[in-house]
């Protein structure tokens, strides 16, 4: 019992904290499979975060807030996708542009609407409903860990399962993968690789919008740059997850765990806050380097 007092809540938190990573990486998986490195995840998430909380406060409905947040994020994804694909812009640069646009737009709008460039609290937002199933909660261990999260957590699980089915069991998924493996083949079949890339970007807009909504609606507030690198971490999650849905779940869990440990450390140990904020970056970059070392030796022998 004494041990559970520490480790179970930590893992319970991890399951909640990993959700934005998982969602952003789910959408990013589609773009990655079509052969694009989508660095706009960060910006799309920020757009989703801002608009979902603003619309939730304005309409008084969480559902509408999330929906409009997702739509905003998909609109920006559409802009990003059309410029990258149809105007043939360099995708890294247009990705950077998207991140900048998101950072600028959210601050300008929050200054314009609320007169503040800082944290904006929304008092009238109801909390995200949590899933409580009394008899399942009694199941030892699993009940503690998996039950009692907010509904978006379960929605993220649904998304990744759906993504796995779509990617591996539908013609659409096959063509998405085909676009990344060999776009000339797709063209020779009379299909448009550009079309599949745009759809992949829109899917990433959808999941990133949802991921952003998780961040702000949990808090009931918007903090400038609330995503703080999570979109980038999601990119690394896709790599570490070996570009498979299951791998992404595991990798998100690892990063969620790292973040919940650093949250825990913030309260328990006397470390400067800046170091704790830097911790996720350091973990991510080390994980990424270790992964590439592992891959390197697996591919080229010793």
């Amino acid at each position: 019992m004494s041990e559970n007092g520490f480790s179970l809540p930590l893992i319970h938190n991890t399951v909640g904290i990993m959700t934005p990573f998982l969602l952003a990486a789910t959408g990013g998986l589609f773009t990655e499979l079509t052969g694009m490195l989508n660095i706009a995840l960060e910006g799309l998430m920020l757009i989703g975060a801002f608009f979902s909380v603003v619309f939730a406060a304005a309409t008084g409905s969480l559902f509408l807030g999330i929906l409009l947040g997702i739509i905003s994020s998909m609109l920006v994804a559409l802009l990003f996708g059309s410029i990258s694909l149809y105007l043939k812009a360099n995708i890294f640069i247009s990705g950077l542009a998207t991140n900048l646009l998101a950072a600028g737009l959210t601050v300008v709008l929050s200054f314009q609407l609320f007169g503040s460039k800082g944290v904006i609290r929304f008092e009238n937002i109801s909390k995200l409903p949590e899933l409580r199933i009394p008899f399942l909660q009694k199941v030892p261990l699993l009940g503690d860990l998996l039950i009692g999260h907010n509904i978006l957590v379960y929605l993220s699980w649904l998304c990744i399962i759906l993504a796995a089915v779509v990617i591996y069991r539908t013609p659409f998924g096959l063509r998405i993968r085909g676009t990344g493996l060999s776009s000339p083949t797709i063209t020779s079949l009379g299909l448009s690789p550009t079309g599949y890339r745009l759809k992949a970007i829109l899917i990433s807009g959808f999941t990133c919008g949802l991921a952003g909504a998780v961040l702000t609606l949990n808090l009931g507030a918007f903090v400038p740059n609330i995503t703080s690198g999570r979109g980038w971490i999601a990119l690394v999650v896709i790599y570490l997850g070996n570009k498979t849905p299951l791998g992404i779940v595991i990798a998100s869990f690892v990063f969620g765990f790292a973040e919940s440990i650093s949250n825990y450390a913030q309260g328990a140990i006397n470390i400067p806050a800046d170091f704790i904020l830097a911790f996720p970056y350091m973990i991510t970059v080390s994980a990424m380097i270790l992964y590439s070392v592992w891959r390197h030796y697996r591919e080229y022998g010793k």
Binding site: I83, L87, A89, S94, A97, A103, G104, L105
Partner: peptide, 15 residues
């Protein structure tokens, strides 16, 4: 920042 992002978008647009 917004103007800058527009420049980013357009300046690489090869089309």
């Amino acid at each position: 920042a917004i103007v800058q992002s527009i420049i980013f978008y357009l300046v690489t647009a090869q089309a």
